[in-house]
Amino acid sequence: LPGAKAWIEKNILPYHPKTIIRYIAVGNEILATSDKTLIAHLLPAMKALRSALDSANATSVKVSTPHSLGILSTSEPPSAGKFRKGYDKLIFAPIFEFHKQTKSPFMVNPYPYFGFKPQTLDYALFKPNGGVFDAGTGINYTNMFDAQLDAVYTAMKRVGYEDVDLVVAETGWPSVGDPGQPGVSLENALSYNGNLIKHVDSGKGTPLMPNRTFETYIFALFNENLKESVPERNFGLFKPDLNPVYDVGILRSEQ
């Protein structure tokens, strides 16, 4: 707790509440590291930061940790979604209980980009397509984003925490890929992120979570030239010099 208090005093209190800080994300995709020490310390770190925030009267700042969809052992069809064996009760039930008690969201990073095949590109980009049928629910999914979120929801329901809120901590599509890489182009990046914004803003939610607007963060604001692969360097909406790579409808004209 002393370490958490010191961190809050240095990194949050000088800026809050003048700067709106909604969340502290404790690590990123920690379970994907398979590092037992990191995983064991994840929830205690979240609890320590929560206590430190409460002590500092910064109660509006929520604490969470983003997860990749690798936390699921099964994600297709969505009605079969379940957490990895051994993680459901030992890891996730206590994390969900923390979220429930602190009214903080469970954060996930769904990426249709990593799940599409050439024949499902339109399905991944929210474009018109025949859909993918889930025989377990009788639902025909028309986009992969909804299917991925509903798989997470189904897994949450299996452990009894479907009432915990969901936040999309990151999702996106690269605008440049390796030579000949299918599905990667500026046009497709614009399609995915542009259609994502429209879909989320519509308030339709997903088939299993209707009439919900999911707080969603696009990855990423800037291209990152130190990443290893060409696609990883080109997820940004802006170049490092602040010039836009493309406009998904968020740019304002100069007054």
Rank of each mutant, 00 (worst) to 15 (best):
N243A: 10
R50H: 08
Y153V: 07
N211I: 09
H199N: 12
D146P: 07
N243I: 06
T206M: 05
S73D: 12
N225E: 15
N225A: 15
E224V: 14
V26K: 10
N225Q: 15
L72W: 03
L221C: 06
A189M: 08
I24W: 04
P118N: 14
K18Q: 13
N129S: 08
Y192A: 13
Q181R: 09
K198Q: 09
F116K: 14
R22P: 00
V176W: 05
I71D: 07
Q101R: 06
L208Q: 13
R50A: 03
Y123G: 12
L221M: 07
L125P: 07
Y113P: 14
I91S: 02
P179R: 10
N140H: 08
P210L: 06
I24Y: 04
F238M: 09
Q101M: 06
G131T: 14
G81C: 04
P174K: 05
E187L: 13
E232S: 10
P118D: 13
L149C: 11
T213P: 15
P94F: 01
T142M: 15
A6K: 15
P128N: 14
E29Q: 13
E9P: 00
G130T: 06
I71Y: 05
I197E: 07
L190Q: 13
P78S: 08
A124S: 15
Y113F: 15
A135P: 14
E215M: 04
N188F: 01
I250S: 02
P118C: 14
G81R: 10
